[in-house]
Design a protein around this nucleic acid. Structure first.
Lengths: 205, 205
DNA sequence: TAGATTGTTAATCGATTAACAATC
DNA sequence: TAGATTGTTAATCGATTAACAATC
């Protein structure tokens, strides 16, 4: 039974469940339990059940969850039962790595556009992907109707890029620049910064 | 006044405060307030004050926080008032990107060792960094007494690498493989997986 | 039927926010 | 002194856990 909007923190756990379900399917399992799934992702069984029940009754008492069925449901909830086109802005080392990363396609994403401002890079290719002049970014993202961008430019250019993206169809930004960016209401931002993660762990060393 | 152990979630915010403080210092500011810092990182002023006060009385009523002093204190707390050597395991695209990433050094980290299992890569260099055979990893990490590793191998090898790292001095792992790894008590793991982050945001599209 | 496991409610725990005395 | 802002306490809010009736 659907309730009010599920909290953000639950949405954030769904991709982890999905990851575990994929691996379970790979081992040939057909069914799992909140107990088992919890062990795979390091979360209590009670929480797994509570999270999943936010979206419907996908399990069976006594039996557990059908892996394929639950996988499909979570993919629907997260809207990754389709392929999303993605643009990369900034083709330095990180951007390059993202462009070549093989892990996107089978998880719902395809890198469709890549931009940089360096004359040496513009016009070159990474696999099939052409690096284009960032000057034409707004127009090209709009005509491709792309909703997701990964920003991998230096920190001092990140806000500028974000401001340009505000003029496009982009509504989700994965920001690799180690700086917070301001975006308008309705645009979602996630941050990935290896140094920040490392600094978190040194506390415990 | 020191209290009981500060919760993990507070530790995780300290690197964000640090990032903002650095940028403030860049603009020439000498002093900030919980209000201003909060705006920079997107957190309430009350929470900023509460977080910081866990570790000492670093501010002055009526004035706020001295940026340089607070920066130093947070760096001490996080133990990044020194340089940590880091090893990269797996020199695919992600590993390459990490090895070349310029953002580590001024945030407390230096990439010291790199390993891969591919004969074509072993013996080649990235800048000054020699890619070494993963077969000798345990020994080399131990003799360099490295405490931090970044794992960028395919998902199906991540656990194996983690098991090998368990035989070394490594106590903190930043895992880029899209899979949860089991480690023994006292080893900390953080996960970075772009696809997981993207999947989180598609829910809101 | 007996055993297992869900979905859900109530209890607990922890984190965030609001408010304000202390004080620079 | 008056104004500003901290550090801290109390109140609120939200998330996690425990427990169990429902049911496959």
């Amino acid at each position: 039974m659907k309730k009010t909007n599920p909290p953000d923190i639950i949405i954030g756990r769904l991709p982890l469940y999905l990851r575990a379900l994929h691996r379970m399917a790979d081992t040939g399992s057909l069914v799992t339990s909140s107990q088992e799934l919890g062990e795979w992702v390091g979360i209590s069984a009670a929480q797994i059940r509570k999270d999943i029940s936010q979206f419907g009754e996908f399990g069976k008492q006594g039996t557990g969850y059908n892996i394929q069925f639950l996988t499909e449901k979570i993919r629907e909830i997260l809207k990754i039962d389709r392929v999303w086109d993605v643009a990369i802005i900034g083709m330095g080392d990180i951007g390059h790595g993202l462009a070549r990363y093989q892990g996107f396609l089978d998880r719902g994403f395809r890198v469709r556009l890549a931009f940089d401002n360096s004359p040496e890079k513009i016009g070159t290719k990474i696999g099939d992907l052409l690096i284009q002049d960032i000057a034409g970014m707004v127009e090209k993202i709009n005509s491709a109707k792309i909703k997701i961008a990964m920003v991998a430019v230096p920190a001092n250019h990140a806000q500028e890029v974000a401001d340009d993206l505000a003029k496009t169809s982009v509504r989700a930004i994965l920001n690799y620049a180690p700086i917070r960016i301001n975006v308008s209401e309705g645009v979602h931002v996630q941050y990935i910064d290896p140094a920040t993660h490392l600094q978190w762990m040194t506390y415990y060393l």
